[in-house]
Each structure stands twice: as structure tokens, then as C-alpha cells.
Write a protein that binds this DNA or RNA. Structure first.
Lengths: 337, 337
DNA sequence: TTGAAAGCGATACCAG
DNA sequence: CTGGTATCGCTTTCAA
């Protein structure tokens, strides 16, 4: 900046004004400074800028208050990243909302003070009221990203999560190739209001129908991400459908599924594909209860939220390619640890 | 730091000495400062530190000068990350060595000036001379990591890459589950001196023998990562082994394989598993020539090298979990873009 | 519309 | 052993 000031024959303050598009500079002066900038190949030192600015980013994660492993992993990552990001003047915090309670999320969002919160990542079912609340937050000047489950028609600035249709397709392809005999496939979902679950179903059905007509996708269980509920519903399902050769557990509540399978040694040949790599699903892979796990990396999710929220708050561009969350496939052999 | 100085009743300079474990402070003074630090819950601002230090990390990547897509991806990532890391006072550069020419790598390493190079990431075949050169570089005070292919008995500070034995096991498991009829599996390797290729073979054979005895791992082709060579060797292999049901391409040179398969429509049912997601392999997945691709993310590799090299150069700890490179599995459905 | 100067939090050099 | 002080690259008052 000193060099620019010298070359352009202006003061540091003016260079700063131009650099940050602050008002109060004559067009002609801007031109002179711009020229100097181009000529010198200047790259801005964000670290120094933040230091001087003493800016602190306050980012909030709104998560369902469920006692499930995936939310756990997210919270842990938020904690870990939070410590590291402290060096980067970024403060992460978490607000919990009763699961599937969109009213709670709405009032949470509406209670946000733009002076205290620069950005918010929302993990929520999709209802009109939430969409509107997001719009209001956005209009207050708070950056908003949707997390894991998108709310595409809201005013969110970005979506952070995997493409759930592709995830469902991936599960279907693996299912079709792993299963060795014709039969029925059981689909376990979480909630009709969770867009991520719906999309997985769409993708799954599509590929099954197309590529594996010898397999029939049977009655789907709505487990509300609740292990107990899942566990209690399964016996009846297996009674009604004796010929189940595969299970796609597309939501949470895996613990109920594993517990049920442990109790039914006759079911060990069933191909099971589930979501999210957690201690439980990792163990299930090792033990052969699960054949594959589809995962979205919690660390990436959190990091991506932070980057996107900061970029949006600062109104600066970001690298879209880097922010695409990958659909990880884990089988026993490539599972770390 | 000001607060600490005030509370401890010493100067800024002394606080700095204690914080950075610099010599020349009495034990008692250290204690006083430490107490103040604990009491105040101080967290160091690395950005400010780097700013003041004006430290620049000069990191070098030594890569084989092969015209293959994976090296390409690495170089591109080095370029991209390099630009971003410029803000972090980190300079990345690349040195190329003739492929499989360990002598070139050795002289490159020996020519390094610790004043100009803080760390180096080495992607090289494993020979005693390279090991020794690494030790010499290390002893000169240059941080060294091995990249993609480990040289475990050298003095490298870390290895950055996937666990290649597990990668081979992963390929085998997928192969065994995807293939529907007994027969032979062709193994294509790169070089006998490339440790990564060797390890993949080990893992692959192990799982095949154990879990899929109905499949026989047939003659392995040594393609030297050269598409032309691979292409020219395949016809003979298929003559000698009429019953090939699967191919594991564990090295580079995929272009030769794809070209060969395009010319042999009768081979479309063969299950093909290859390494590294590149434009070529991505297209092969889409077109159904490849059934799965095992990948190590080039971006992660480069970022990890940079972090590790900087941490080692500064002699500070790092987060091992974050530095573990994952074994990605791609099938048609979960391939991005 | 512009400039001068005082920091931000830390490091480094020179004196004492 | 310890302290003072200039400096890093940039932002932010306050004056002009």
C-alpha cells in the first residue's frame, strides 16, 4: 500500500478508500490509484487488514437438539474449528432448537441481532415459515447458509451439504451391485419434512427402477431419526415382507437398526447401506452389519459454512469448487482408524 | 500481550521471550509471566505474529516430470494453493525430475539451500540413494515430507498420502463384489520401485485371496505409468488369458487402458477399477468403462504438505487426524460435476 | 475530497 | 537478563 501511495502520489488513506471502495474520492484520483495497483500487482494482506480492523466474525449454527451421532459430530467440529478460527477472528457458536420444531427455529432466527451475529448456518426442515424467517434474517443483513438440508427457495446465500439426490443414487447403485439375489429393499427415512431425506429417496428410487428392476423398493419406514422408533417398527416390517435382501437407511436412528440386526442372526446376508460415518456405523462396517456408509464430512461442512458466511458477510467472492461437499463412500476397507 | 506485561510487571519484550521460549529470562520471571498468561487466558494471534515476523515459508515440491493427469492435478493444485497461501506468507514452487531418475532427485535434494528452502515434499521411487539424500536435506535443517509414495526408513518428517495397502484392499473388495462370474483379474502396475504400487498389490492380493477365492489374480502388467506401453501390452495379455472378468489398474497410464477397451466392444462387461479421479477417468466412469475409481484428493495432498512442512519448519505440533488423507471411492453416481 | 497520525498484536534489534 | 522502540500492512479517526 505504501508503494501504491507513492506511485500514485496520494496518501495511504486514499489508497485505502479506493481499495475498499469507500466514498469520497474523485474519479480521477481513483483512476490514478487503480493504475498504480495494476502496475504493482498488489495482493491484499487480509490478515493485516483484519488485525487493523479488529473485526470479529460472529457465526451461529442453528441445529436440531437431537441426541444423534451426526449432530454430535457437527457440534464437536464446531467446537474444534472454533478454537482454531479464534486466531482468525472468527467466533463460532451453537443454538439448539427442538427437533422438527420449526416454530422454535423461526423465533430464534427472528431474535438475531445483526450487530451481534454476522452469519448463521441453519439446519432445518423445510416449511414456509422457516423460509420467511430466513428471508427476514437475510434482509437484516445477516449472512445465511442452509446446512445439510437445503431450503432452495428461501433467501439463503448458499447451501452447504451434499447433493442428496446423487447420494440416493449412489446408495442405489451400490445396493444393486452388492445384492446377489432378487428380492425387496427396505427404505428407512426420517421425516417427510426433511428435504434431504426426500431427495435421497428420489435418487434412490430412480436408479433402482432404471438399473435394477429385479429389486423392489418396499414399504418405507419413517423413523423420525429416533433409534427407539426404528427399533420398534422393524419387526412388523420383516413380518410383512419376508423377502428383504437390502436395507437403505437414509436418515439417522441407525442405532435402532443395528440393535435389531444383532438380535436376528438370520439377517446377516442382507445388504445394508446407511448414512454418516460415526463410531456406531464404523463399528457396524467392521462387524459386517453395514456394507457401505455414505458420508458427508462434518469437518468440511463446518469449515465450509465458516468460509461462506465470512465471505458473504464481507461480500467477497469465494471458490465454489472448494465448497462443494463430496459424497464419501466408505466400506470396511477404506474406513480410517 | 500488553495485559500480560502489565499484570506480570515486565516489558513486552520479556513476555515475547517467555511466549516463544527464547533464552535469557530468569526462571522466576518466567514463572511470573506464565502466571499472568494463565490468569488472562491468552490466545496468541498468529496473524499478527506472522505480520511482525515477516516470515516467508519457501516450500518446494519435487515431482516426476511425467505428462500424466495426476501429476498435472498436483501441479495445478500447487499453483492454486500457492496463490492463496501467498496471503499466509507461504511460497510454493515445483521442481521436476526425470521420471524414475533417482539420480536427478538426489542431486536436486543435495543442491537445496536451507536459507532458501524451508521444506520440501518429495514424490519419488524408493532407492537407498534417495533415502540418503533425504537424510542429508533433513540434517541441513530442511523439513521433508514424502508425497504419495512413502520412504518409511528415510529421515522424512512425515508421509503425505493414502495408506496404499488399504487402497489395494478397497479395490479388491469392490472388485469382488462387482464381478458377477468367476474368472481372472488382471493387475496393472507401474513400477517395481514405486512403493505405492507395491503396497496396493499387497493389499489387493490379500483381500482377493481371503474373500474371493473364485477369482484368480492373473499376470500383472508393468506399464511404467506410460499409456503407450500399457496399450501395446494389453492385446497379448488378453490372448493369453481369455477369461478376464476384472481389471485393477493400480498405477497411471489409464489412457492406454481406456483406448484399448474402446477398441474391444466385447470387453464391456469387464469390471474395471482404476486410481485417481481425472478428466479421463471421470469420463470413463460416466461412459461405463470404469466401474470405480480410487482417489486421493490432490488439493488435500498439497494443503497437507504445506501445513506439515510449515509446522515442521517451525517445530510446532499439528493435528494428525486432519492430515490423514482419505481413500476416496468414486462411482458414476457420486462423481462431482 | 484528501492527508497525517495513532493504533491492531506481535517481533526484533539495540541498549543498558 | 531486561526494557524501549521501530516496524509489519492495513484501518480509522480527526483535521484540513
Amino acid at each position: 500500500m505504501n508503494d501504491i501511495a507513492r506511485v500514485a502520489g496520494v496518501s495511504l488513506a486514499t489508497v485505502d478508500r479506493v481499495l475498499n471502495e469507500r466514498p469520497g474520492v474523485r474519479k480521477i484520483t481513483i483512476k490514478r490509484v487503480q493504475a498504480a495497483i495494476d502496475q504493482l500487482g498488489y495482493v491484499r494482506d487480509t490478515a493485516a487488514a483484519n488485525l487493523a480492523r479488529r473485526r470479529v466474525y460472529n457465526l451461529l449454527f442453528v441445529l436440531p437438539d437431537t441426541d444423534n451421532e451426526f449432530i454430535h459430530a457437527l457440534r464437536q467440529q464446531i467446537g474444534e474449528q472454533g478454537e482454531k478460527l479464534a486466531n482468525d477472528r472468527t467466533e463460532l457458536s451453537v443454538a439448539l432448537a427442538a427437533p422438527f420444531d420449526t416454530q422454535g427455529i423461526v423465533s430464534l432466527l427472528d431474535g438475531l441481532d445483526p450487530a451481534k451475529t454476522d452469519g448463521v448456518a441453519v439446519f432445518s426442515p423445510e416449511t414456509p415459515s422457516v423460509r420467511d424467517a430466513i428471508k427476514r434474517a437475510h434482509d437484516k443483513g445477516i449472512a445465511v447458509v442452509t446446512l445439510v438440508a437445503d431450503l432452495p427457495t428461501s433467501q439463503r446465500d448458499h447451501f452447504v451439504g451434499i447433493d442428496n439426490i446423487s447420494a440416493g443414487r449412489t446408495a442405489a447403485q451400490l445396493m444393486g451391485r452388492f445384492v446377489r439375489t432378487p428380492g425387496k429393499v427396505l427404505f428407512i427415512t426420517g421425516s417427510r419434512f426433511a428435504r434431504d431425506h426426500l431427495e435421497r429417496r428420489l435418487g434412490f428410487d430412480d436408479v433402482m427402477r432404471q438399473d435394477f428392476p429385479e429389486l423392489e423398493v418396499a414399504a418405507s419406514v419413517e423413523g423420525r431419526d429416533d433409534p427407539e422408533l426404528v427399533y420398534s417398527m422393524l419387526p412388523e416390517v420383516f413380518e410383512n415382507h419376508p423377502n428383504i435382501v437390502g436395507i437403505y437407511s437414509s436418515a439417522a436412528g441407525n442405532e435402532g437398526l443395528v440393535r435389531f440386526m444383532r438380535g436376528q442372526p438370520g439377517l446377516r446376508d442382507i445388504v445394508v447401506i446407511a448414512h454418516e460415518l460415526t463410531p456406531l456405523s464404523r463399528a457396524a462396517l467392521k462387524d459386517g452389519y453395514f456394507d457401505a456408509v455414505i458420508n458427508q464430512d462434518a469437518g468440511h461442512l463446518v469449515r465450509s459454512c465458516a468460509r461462506l458466511l465470512r465471505a458473504t458477510a464481507d461480500n467477497v467472492p469465494f471458490n465454489a469448487a472448494q465448497e462443494r461437499i463430496r459424497i464419501d463412500i466408505y466400506i470396511k476397507e477404506n474406513t480410517p482408524g
